[in-house]
Amino acid sequence: VCDQCGRNMVIKIGRFGRFLACPGFPECKNTKKIVQETAGSCPLCGEKIILKKSKRGRSFYGCSAYPDCNFMTWNVPTEEKCPQCGCTLFQKGGKSGTLVCEKPDCGYSRPVGGGA
């Protein structure tokens, strides 16, 4: 529902991708981003990690608290937690890759599917 006029928002596609817009344009020009949250949390500040797109359309993961926190990674966040520090583990190298902790002072890693 639109915050300004009360109509139901619709999904539109623009040059920066999909977004929510009020159908009452041009009287109401309210728009909102569509944000896709992931399973993990930021290893630096603890906020949610969201899926973003680079200029060339490649997916990457960044902290939702940007620009206050500048955490960014190409690795996919998982629901698993690091046994050493308790932060989110990230999957590096595809399905048969490794799970790594991206907290700067931890350095934990193990193969995907392997024990802790």
Rank of each mutant, 00 (worst) to 15 (best):
R7E: 11
R7P: 00
M9W: 05
V10S: 03
I11E: 02
K12E: 10
K12T: 04
G14R: 02
R18E: 02
L20F: 12
L20K: 06
L20V: 00
C22N: 08
G24T: 01
F25Y: 15
P26F: 14
E27S: 01
K29P: 07
T31P: 03
T31R: 04
K33P: 15
I34H: 06
V35Q: 02
C42N: 08
P43D: 14
L44Y: 02
C45P: 15
C45T: 14
G46I: 01
K48E: 10
K48C: 00
I49Y: 06
I50M: 05
S54G: 13
K55M: 00
R56N: 11
R56D: 02
R56H: 02
R58C: 00
Y61W: 09
G62I: 00
G62Q: 02
S64Q: 15
A65C: 03
Y66L: 13
D68A: 13
N70A: 10
N70S: 12
M72G: 14
T73W: 07
W74G: 09
N75R: 14
V76M: 08
P77V: 03
P77K: 06
T78H: 09
E79D: 09
K81H: 09
C85R: 00
C85F: 05
C85I: 06
L89I: 14
F90Y: 11
F90H: 03
K92N: 14
K95T: 15
S96V: 04
S96A: 13
S96P: 00
L99S: 14
C101K: 11
E102G: 05
E102S: 10
K103S: 14
P104I: 11
